[in-house]
Design a protein around this nucleic acid. Structure first.
Length: 977
DNA sequence: CCTGCCCCATA
DNA sequence: GTATGGGGCAGGA
C-alpha cells in the first residue's frame, strides 16, 4: 500500500467510506447461501461485496449517492475487544459467534479490497465505526462531502449537511430526514436517544422502560441528555422518573458507548484513500480465483484485458478446510454425523428451498420468443446473469434421430422463455407433416445466435439430464460448456432415495410443484404426437416451465454439495461423464445386420423343431412361452414331482426347476430349456438389435443412464448393450455380430476380479491382499483356505464352490442363497460360511460395519465417497430388512468398482490424445471397456488403455491390491473378449 | 392398451 | 445372496 504523501483533501472532494464489517454480515444474511466456489468455499458475501464495490468504483453516480467519489476506503473492525469494553465489560458481549461459513469470508473480503486497489483500513482497539467517524470529521473539516456506505443505525449520528449514508442493498440514501424518521430527532441528538433507549443487540443498557419513541420525546422536550437527567425529578410518570434517576449513570455510560470517537488515531491519512487506477491483472486474478464469472468478464472488458490470459490468484484461506480429495472410506466414523441436524448446511438448503418455493410458478406467464431481437435480448440476459437453464424440445426420445423443435431458457426463478424453431402444422400430410409454422426464427439463425452463449466459458449452462441435450446440440455443431446437471446433482446427493432423479419427481420433492406432464401435452401411446405438432402457446408453457423448474432445482441442489461433502464426487465422478458418454453414444457400434438375420433364421428353425418335439412329447399343443400353461402341464397334467411355487402362487418354471426335473431323468424339461434359450436369443437380440440400427450412421447407439442405479453403475438401454450374451455358444454368435469398421479392430479391456480386489482392499484381508499381489488364482486360494486342500491338483468342484462363496460374499451372502446356488442344504451352506468367516474374520467385520452404518445413517459409501441410500432399511419386516442389509454390503463393493471405471473413462480420452492415438471408446459393460482402434494403432493402444484403467484410483487413492486389466483386440467382440 | 409377473441376458 | 433392462404372457381396463 502506498505510503508516500498524497495531496490533502479539498473542498469539492467526495469521500466514500465503506463499512466493510457490517456489509459482510448483511450480505451474508440477505443473500441466499447459494454461492460457493467449486471447492466448496462459501463466497456469497464476498460476491455481494465485490459487486457492490465494483459498482461504486464504476457508476456511483447512478446510485442513490448520485456522485462519483474522489476518495474511497473500506473500513473493517479489527478485533472484538475495544476501548468500549473498558467502559462497560458487557458491551457486545452477547454477540454470537459468526456462522461457520462466514468466517473464511472475512479475510477474503480484505483480499478483495486490495485486489480492486482500494484502501483497506483497520485499527487495533477501535471499531470500524470510530474510524469512519474520524475520517468523516476530517473530511468535513477539509470542506469535502462524505458518503458512508452502510445502513448501520449507529452511524446515523454522523449524518449532517455534508455527510449522508447510502444503503447499497436497497439503493437508499439516508440523510437528515431519514434519520429523523428513524429516531424522531435530528442526527446530532441521535446519541442522546440511543443512550436512553439502549440497544439489546450491542448490549448497550440504556434506561429501563424507555425505548426510541419515549427517548425522542424526552430529548425533544428537554434538549439533551444531561439536561434531562438533571431535571429528571420533574417527570410526571412515576416509574419513568424513578428509572431516570436510578439509572442516570447507566445512561451516561451508554452515551459513551454509542458516541463515536472523532479522534481515533489513524495510521493511514485519508488523503491516501484517493481513488486509484484499477490494476486489471490484480483484480482479474482475484476474481478468477473466486470463480465470479460475470464480474470477471465485466472487469476484463473495462480493463481492456483478456481474462483468459490472467492466472487465477493463489489464495490461502484461513479457517476453511476444503473438502478432502477423497471422502472418508466406509469404515470411517466421520460419516456418522448427520447432515440433517440443527442450523447446518441441510437447514440452509431447506431455507433456500423454501425461498424458491415462495416464488410463484405460472406456466402461462412465460415468453414465447418469436423474433431475433427478443432472442438476442434473452441471450444478453444470460450473459449478464452468468448462468442459464437450458432445455431442448425434440421429435424423439432418441437423441441420435431426434430433430430439434425448440429451446427453452431460464435466467431466474419465474423468468423463462421458449424459442420455437421447428413447429409444424398439426394437419400434416402423409409424407411427414405440414410445413413450418409462421413466426419462428429460422433454425440455423437461432443456432448461430445460441452457439456463442452455450459455448461461452463465462456462462454456466444448467440442464436436467444434459447428456440428451448435449447430443442434440452437438449434432447441430454446439459443444455445451461449462455446465451443471440437476439430475446428476440429485443423484450425487440422494442416490437411492424415494422418487428417483427425474425432473417431475424432483420438482415435487423440492419445489412442491407438479410440472405440466409430457403426456398431457403430446398424449400417450398410439395417439401420441411429436412435440413439433404442438401449438406454440401450449408448447411454450410446457417447455419454458421445464427450464424454470430446472433452474430452481439447481439453486436448491447445488448449494447442498459442499455441506454434504459431495463436491468431489460430483465433480470427478458425475459431471465429467456427460460429454464422455455423449460421445460414446454418438459413435455407436457397428453390427452386422446380415449375420443377425441369418442367425435369427437359424434360431427360428431350431426353435420350431424343438417346439414340434415338445408338443409331441407333451401329447398336446400349448404355448411353451406361457409359464402358466407350462406349469399347469408339467405339475398338473403330467404330475411331475418337485414343483415350486412363485410368490404369487403360480408354478415356477424357472431354469433351476426345469434342470432339477431334467436331473430326475425327465426329457421334456431339457427341450423346454433349449427352446427357451433359442427364442430368448431371437426375440431379445437377433430380432431386436437390427431395429436399433440408425438410418444415418448405420450403427447401433445405446443410451447410457448415469443416474438410475443406487450403486453408481451405469445402465444401458434401447438397446441394452450391457447384457449381450457371452456364456453359451449360441449366445456368443450374437457377440460375433458386433464388428469393427473396415481397417479397425474392436479392443476389449476388462478388469479382472475388480470387486473382489475392492473388497480385499476395503476389508483389509491379508490373505486376499497377498494373493492378489502375487497374482494367484483367487478362487483356488479361497478353496485352499476354507476346505484345507492344496491348490495344486485341486478338484475343480472344490474351486467352483469357493468361487460361488466369493461371489456370495460380494452379494451379502446368506445360507439360503448359497445353498440355492450350489444345490446343497442350507445347513451345509451355513457351515461353509462359518468356516469362511473363521478364515477371513475381516470380511465379517466389514459386513457388520456396513450393516451398522446403513442402520445409523441410512446410507453407505464407496471408497471415493459416493453415497448409496437405503431409507427403508429400518423396516420391521425382517425379510426386507435383511435384503437392504445385503444391498448395503454389496453397494460399497459394486459402487467402488463403478467409481474406478468412471475415473478411467473420464481420463481415457485425454490419455489417448496425449499419445496421439485415435482409439474411440464405444461401450462400457461395468468392468469392461470396448474401443474401436485403427489396425496399425492396436499394439500401442492396448498397454495404454490397460495402464489407464489399472491406475484409475490414483492419485485420489492407492489400493492395497493391484488392479489387473486384460485387453485384447479382434475383428469382433466375441473374439476380443 | 397398460401393467404386473415371470423369466432371463449381463456384470 | 447384489445391480440392471427387456421380452412375452395374461389379466384388467
Amino acid at each position: 500500500m502506498s505510503s508516500e504523501s498524497s495531496p490533502s483533501l479539498k473542498a469539492g472532494d467526495h469521500v466514500f467510506l465503506v463499512d466493510g464489517s457490517s456489509y459482510i454480515f448483511r450480505a451474508y444474511h440477505a443473500l441466499p447461501p447459494l454461492t460457493r466456489k467449486s471447492d466448496g468455499l462459501p463466497v456469497g458475501a464476498v460476491a455481494g461485496f465485490c459487486n457492490m464495490l465494483w459498482k461504486l468504483l464504476q457508476e456511483a453516480d447512478e446510485t442513490a449517492a448520485g456522485v462519483t467519489p474522489t476518495h474511497i476506503a473500506v473500513i473493517f473492525d479489527h478485533s472484538a475487544k475495544t476501548f468500549r469494553n473498558e467502559i462497560y465489560d458487557q458491551y457486545k458481549a452477547q454477540r454470537p459467534e459468526p456462522p461457520e461459513d462466514l468466517i473464511p469470508q472475512f479475510g477474503i473480503i480484505r483480499d478483495a479490497v486490495r485486489a480492486f486497489n482500494v484502501a483497506s483500513i483497520e485499527q487495533p482497539g477501535y471499531e470500524a465505526d470510530d474510524i469512519i467517524a474520524t475520517y468523516a470529521c476530517q473530511a468535513v473539516e477539509a470542506g469535502a462531502d462524505v458518503t458512508i456506505i452502510s445502513s448501520d443505525k449507529d452511524l446515523m449520528q454522523l449524518v449532517g449537511p455534508h455527510v449522508i449514508m447510502l444503503d447499497t442493498m436497497k439503493n437508499k440514501r439516508i440523510a437528515e430526514p431519514e434519520v429523523f424518521e428513524k429516531f424522531g430527532v435530528a442526527p446530532d441528538k441521535v446519541v442522546d436517544v440511543q443512550s436512553l433507549a439502549g440497544d439489546s443487540v450491542d448490549n448497550v443498557p440504556g434506561v429501563p422502560g424507555i425505548g426510541v419513541k419515549t427517548a425522542a420525546q424526552l430529548i425533544n422536550e428537554y434538549g439533551d441528555l444531561e439536561t434531562l437527567l438533571s431535571r429528571a425529578s420533574e417527570i410526571k410518570q412515576t416509574k419513568r422518573r424513578e428509572n431516570l434517576i436510578e439509572f442516570a449513570d447507566q445512561a451516561r455510560i451508554s452515551r459513551r458507548l454509542v458516541e463515536l470517537d472523532c479522534n481515533t488515531p489513524v495510521d493511514v491519512p485519508l488523503a491516501d484513500a484517493a481513488v486509484r487506477k484499477l490494476d486489471g491483472e490484480k483484480a482479474l486474478a482475484f476474481l478468477k480465483a473466486m470463480e465470479f464469472t460475470t464480474l470477471t468478464r465485466r472487469v476484463a472488458e473495462t480493463a481492456g484485458k483478456d481474462a483468459g490470459t490472467v492466472e487465477a490468484a493463489d489464495l490461502a484461506i484461513k479457517g476453511w478446510d476444503a473438502p478432502e480429495t477423497a471422502a472418508p472410506s466406509g469404515s470411517s466414523e466421520k460419516s456418522v454425523a448427520s447432515p440433517a441436524s440443527g442450523a447446518g448446511p441441510a437447514a440452509l438448503a431447506e431455507a433456500r428451498a423454501a425461498e424458491i418455493r415462495a416464488i410463484p410458478l405460472d406456466a402461462s406467464a412465460y415468453e414465447c420468443v418469436r423474433d431475433v431481437a427478443r432472442l438476442k435480448a434473452w441471450i444478453e440476459d444470460a450473459f449478464e446473469t452468468g448462468f442459464v437453464a437450458v432445455d431442448t424440445e425434440t421429435t424423439s426420445l432418441d437423441p441420435m434421430e431426434a430433430e430439434l423443435v425448440g429451446v427453452s431458457l431460464s435466467t431466474a426463478p419465474g423468468k423463462a422463455c421458449y424459442i420455437p424453431l421447428g413447429h409444424r402444422d398439426g394437419e400434416g400430410d402423409l409424407l411427414g407433416g405440414g410445413g413450418l409454422l409462421e413466426g419462428q426464427i429460422p433454425l440455423k439463425e437461432a443456432i448461430d445466435l445460441l452457439k456463442p452463449l452455450l459455448e461461452d466459458a463465462a456462462v454456466l449452462k444448467i440442464a436436467q439430464n444434459l447428456k440428451y441435450d448435449w447430443v442434440i446440440l452437438k449434432r447441430l455443431g454446439i459443444e455445451v460448456a461449462p455446465y451443471d446437471d440437476t439430475m446428476l446433482l440429485s443423484y450425487t446427493l440422494d442416490a437411492g432415495l424415494q422418487g428417483g432423479n427425474g425432473m417431475d419427481a424432483l420438482s415435487e420433492r423440492w419445489l412442491g410443484h407438479t410440472p405440466i406432464k409430457y403426456e398431457d401435452v403430446c398424449g400417450k401411446g398410439k395417439s401420441a404426437v411429436t412435440f413439433d405438432k404442438i401449438a406454440l402457446d401450449r408448447a411454450c408453457s410446457y417447455a419454458a416451465e421445464d427450464a424454470d423448474v430446472t433452474l430452481r432445482l439447481w439453486q436448491v441442489l447445488k448449494c447442498r454439495l459442499p455441506g454434504e461433502t459431495m463436491t468431489t464426487v460430483y465433480e470427478t465422478l458425475e459431471r465429467p461423464m456427460v460429454p464422455v458418454l455423449s460421445r460414446m453414444e454418438m459413435r455407436g457400434i457397428h453390427v452386422d445386420r446380415q449375420m443377425l438375420s441369418r442367425l435369427s433364421g437359424e434360431l427360428a428353425q431350431g426353435a420350431a423343431a424343438l417346439e414340434a418335439e415338445i408338443h409331441e412329447m407333451a401329447g398336446e399343443t400349448f404355448n411353451i412361452g406361457s409359464p402358466k400353461q407350462l406349469g399347469d402341464l408339467l405339475f398338473g397334467r403330467l404330475g411331475l414331482p418337485g414343483g415350486k411355487k412363485t410368490k404369487t402362487g403360480a408354478w415356477s418354471t424357472s431354469v433351476s426347476v426345469l434342470e432339477d426335473l431334467a436331473a430326475e431323468g425327465h426329457p421334456l424339461p431339457v427341450k423346454i430349456v433349449e427352446w427357451r434359450q433359442l427364442t430368448k436369443l431371437r426375440s431379445t437380440y437377433t430380432d431386436a438389435l437390427p431395429d436399433h440400427i440408425n438410418r444415418e450412421t448405420g450403427r447401433v447407439h445405446t443410451s447410457y443412464s448415469l443416474a438410475s442405479t443406487t450403486t453408481g453403475r451405469l445402465s444401458s438401454s434401447e438397446p441394452n448393450l450391457q447384457n449381450i450374451p457371452v456364456r453359451t455358444e449360441a449366445g456368443r454368435k450374437i457377440r460375433k455380430a458386433f464388428v469393427a469398421a473396415e481397417g479397425s479392430k474392436l479392443l476389449s479391456a476388462d478388469y479382472s476380479q475388480i470387486e473382489l480386489r475392492v473388497l480385499a482392499h476395503m476389508a483389509e484381508i491379508p490373505q486376499l491382499v497377498k494373493a492378489f499381489a502375487d497374482g494367484l488364482d483367487i478362487h483356488a486360494m479361497t478353496a485352499s483356505e476354507i476346505f484345507n486342500v492344496p491348490v495344486k491338483d485341486m478338484d475343480p468342484m472344490v474351486r467352483r464352490r469357493a468361487k460361488a462363496i466369493n461371489f456370495g460374499i460380494i452379494y451379502g451372502i446368506s445360507a439360503f442363497g448359497l445353498a440355492n446356488q450350489l444345490g446343497i442344504s442350507r445347513g451345509e451352506a451355513g457351515d461353509y460360511i462359518k468356516t469362511y468367516f473363521e478364515r477371513f474374520p475381516g470380511i465379517r467385520d466389514y459386513m457388520e460395519e456396513m450393516k451398522r452404518q446403513v442402520h445409523a445413517n441410512g446410507y453407505v459409501t464407496t471408497i471415493f465417497g459416493r453415497k448409496a441410500h437405503y431409507p427403508d432399511v429400518n423396516t420391521k419386516n425382517p425379510n426386507m430388512r435383511q435384503f437392504y442389509e445385503r444391498a448395503a454390503i454389496n453397494a460399497p463393493i459394486q459402487g467402488s468398482a463403478a467409481d474406478i471405471i468412471r475415473r478411467a473413462m473420464v481420463r481415457m480420452e485425454d490419455t489417448l490424445a496425449a499419445s496421439k492415438l485415435s482409439a474411440k471408446m464405444l461401450l462400457q459393460v461395468h468392468d469392461e471397456l470396448i474401443f474401436e482402434v485403427p489396425d496399425e494403432e492396436v499394439d500401442a493402444t492396448i498397454p495404454l488403455v490397460a495402464r489407464t484403467m489399472e491406475d484409475a484410483p490414483s492419485p485420489a487413492l492407492s489400493l492395497r491390491v493391484p488392479l489387473q486389466v486384460d485387453a485384447r483386440a479382434a475383428q469382433n467382440w466375441d473374439e476380443a473378449h
